[in-house]
Amino acid sequence: ADDMLGAPLQNLVEFTMFTDFVPPFGNMTSPRADVWVQDMFAPLVFEFFDAVSPILVDSCWVQVEEDFYPMSEIITFISDDLRSGECAIYPERYGFHWNPGDTIEVSLHICDAPDTCEPNCRDTLFLIRFEPTTACYVHPNPFTPNGDGVNEYAVFDYPRMFVKPALLKIFDMRNRPVFEDEIGPIAQPEDFDIRKWNGTDSSGKPLKSGIYLYIIFSEDGEVLCEGTVVLVR
């Protein structure tokens, strides 16, 4: 290489420059967004990082439903190079009141601060699903598995059926076992197929009309529910 006068350069100087067009990444680490949440007061914890540029804390926030919380007020940790950190929102501190079965929208808005270009920002949406409260319940009862498409099977509800499997056992009035099946867990209340009985025995043979006893056991053998179900043909 030559200088402006055409003379060879004696000492070459090399520069490496990076242009950052990638926004920071953020994730909600607690509670997990892919599972049912039981603790109504679990803190909302987020982690964030950028591979190149520092986080622009003053331009970041967390939105819970309609409310905004500046990152500067909820940050719990930031690295020395400002490229990673953590923030948290504590429901009790901010007066949140959620109920079993609620679904809450939470979004994280996070930006970085490149040296020579505009900030890169990313919005990430998370859904928090609180586990519904469920009790022992059979519906419909009586049920009529006669092929007319109405009330063809009995559906069994039991505590914590959204997160825990169970064992359903059916007995006749002489206390003889006639049917047994694993049921649950379910993802939606409409998931009837994995917690139903169609009035047959364990071999698939239709049972006679009558009153039947049922017991639902937990994984460790605890009795969760027991009662009667009426089959009418």
Score class of each variant (00 low, 15 high):
83 R>K: 15
40 M>F: 11
180 E>I: 04
161 M>Y: 03
44 L>V: 02
125 L>P: 00
38 Q>H: 06
108 L>G: 02
190 E>W: 03
26 G>E: 04
41 F>P: 00
159 P>G: 06
43 P>K: 01
1 A>S: 12
192 F>V: 07
77 F>G: 08
140 P>G: 05
183 I>T: 11
94 Y>E: 13
181 D>W: 01
49 F>H: 08
95 G>C: 10
179 F>W: 08
102 D>H: 11
74 I>K: 06
22 V>M: 07
207 L>Q: 11
4 M>W: 06
84 S>V: 01
55 I>V: 10
163 V>F: 01
20 D>K: 09
193 D>A: 14
160 R>A: 15
204 G>Y: 04
128 I>F: 12
62 V>Y: 06
120 N>Y: 05
219 E>M: 08
231 L>W: 04
7 A>N: 15
54 P>N: 08
183 I>F: 13
12 L>I: 07
92 E>C: 00
130 F>S: 09
61 W>F: 15
109 H>R: 08
123 D>M: 07
81 D>C: 08
151 N>T: 05
7 A>D: 14
3 D>N: 15
18 F>H: 13
196 K>E: 04
218 S>C: 13
204 G>N: 10
108 L>H: 04
202 S>Q: 11
194 I>D: 12
124 T>P: 01
150 V>Q: 13
26 G>F: 00
140 P>Y: 03
27 N>K: 07
86 E>L: 05
208 K>M: 10
173 M>R: 15
73 E>R: 11
163 V>R: 12
115 D>V: 02
57 V>S: 01
169 K>T: 09
169 K>W: 01
68 F>K: 15
37 V>Q: 05
152 E>Y: 10
73 E>D: 15
104 I>F: 13
104 I>H: 08
172 D>W: 03
31 P>W: 02
211 I>S: 14
43 P>R: 03
167 L>P: 00
121 C>R: 11
142 P>D: 06
196 K>N: 14
116 T>R: 07
209 S>N: 06
85 G>P: 05
113 A>C: 01
131 E>Y: 05
210 G>R: 07
121 C>A: 07
221 G>L: 05
124 T>I: 09
198 N>M: 04
